[in-house]
Design a protein around this nucleic acid. Structure first.
Ligand SMILES: [Zn+2]
Ligand SMILES: [Zn+2]
Ligand SMILES: [Zn+2]
Ligand SMILES: [Zn+2]
Lengths: 160, 160
DNA sequence: ACACGCATGTTATATAGTAACATCAAGCGC
DNA sequence: GCGCTTGATGTTACTATATAACATGCGTGT
């Protein structure tokens, strides 16, 4: 969130209550199905990402980790983030050094975001990578992951 | 460059000698045309990027800055990089925290790279952003910059 | 019980990037 | 020339981001 931004927060609403519980249960289920374990720190980090209204920095997660005020140690959170990314539950937004929960029911898709430079909203979308993949193939590259980040102004922030 | 990589370096060859001088002169010319100044630290950082065989980290540039061994202070290099990016002479590769000189005669184009996870090569290409821009437009976003980074294996590293 | 693989806890450190303020140098009106 | 403005640089100190290394715990199979 840009400090100078005077607009309403255009970012995704955080989940809470029943919706949050449902999302976490769904994650549990998906982990069980793939022989992975959604352990306590992993679940906690995912919960924090789902509750948030926008991208969170690693050190925001570290600070918020404990149910009381106690922070986590950095490796705890970074390991959880690695896991969540591997499983497709979360994405790292490289140009922000920040993390979001996957809004597209994850696993194995490419990450693409529209990021508002004013209010900090980061909207995930399903990119059409046809042309990019073709360019890679033409050069003989075997592509395993693609990230696309478009910066600009969201509809709300264009107005003011 | 991955430490475990045993392949030949697939990265771009660095410029040197006459080719390097030509590239720097071209940059001078382009700056003069747009009322910008390619000052000494800016020119030096661009030279280091052009000479390199692949993406350079900011602190590599800081260490290599002095003609003798003396390093630069971080702000010197970061400011130069900001300038070079603004003018389209260089790009930051977000997923590497590293920088490359523009290989497509820069100014105002989107940055797109194929990055080899094995040997560290980073090849710039001109992306077809039609679909991505359309997705942005459909959501009302006004996009000002797009970065696309595809990770995988270059032709050389697929073989071994 | 025992060994194995994987997750976690803990300490310390490495790497990346910026704030703040002083100084300098060019352009410009006078 | 002189004083002003604007942009670039030098310098110090600091903040933010991320990882190495090693010890500990825990479930699973034998
Ligand atoms: Zn996603
Ligand atoms: Zn916005
Ligand atoms: Zn370029
Ligand atoms: Zn390679």
């Amino acid at each position: 969130m840009n400090a100078a931004c005077h607009h309403e927060d255009g970012a995704h609403h955080g989940l809470h209550g029943q919706a949050l519980r449902l999302a976490l249960t769904a994650a549990e289920t998906r982990c069980a199905a793939s022989q992975e374990r959604l352990t306590l720190p992993r679940r906690r980090v995912l919960e924090l990402l789902l509750e948030a209204h926008g991208p969170l920095k690693a050190y925001d997660l570290i600070a918020a980790f404990g149910s009381g005020g106690e922070p986590a140690k950095p490796p705890t959170v970074y390991r959880a983030l690695d896991f969540l990314e591997r499983q497709g539950f979360a994405h790292r937004i490289e140009s922000l050094n920040a993390y979001v929960p996957c809004r597209l029911d994850g696993r194995g898709h490419s990450a693409a975001f529209l990021i508002c430079d004013c209010c900090g909203a980061a909207e995930e979308f399903e990119p059409d990578l046809g042309a990019g993949i073709a360019a890679a193939a033409a050069r003989g590259y075997a592509v395993s992951a693609v990230t696309l980040e478009a910066r600009g102004l969201c509809p709300v922030c264009q107005v003011g």
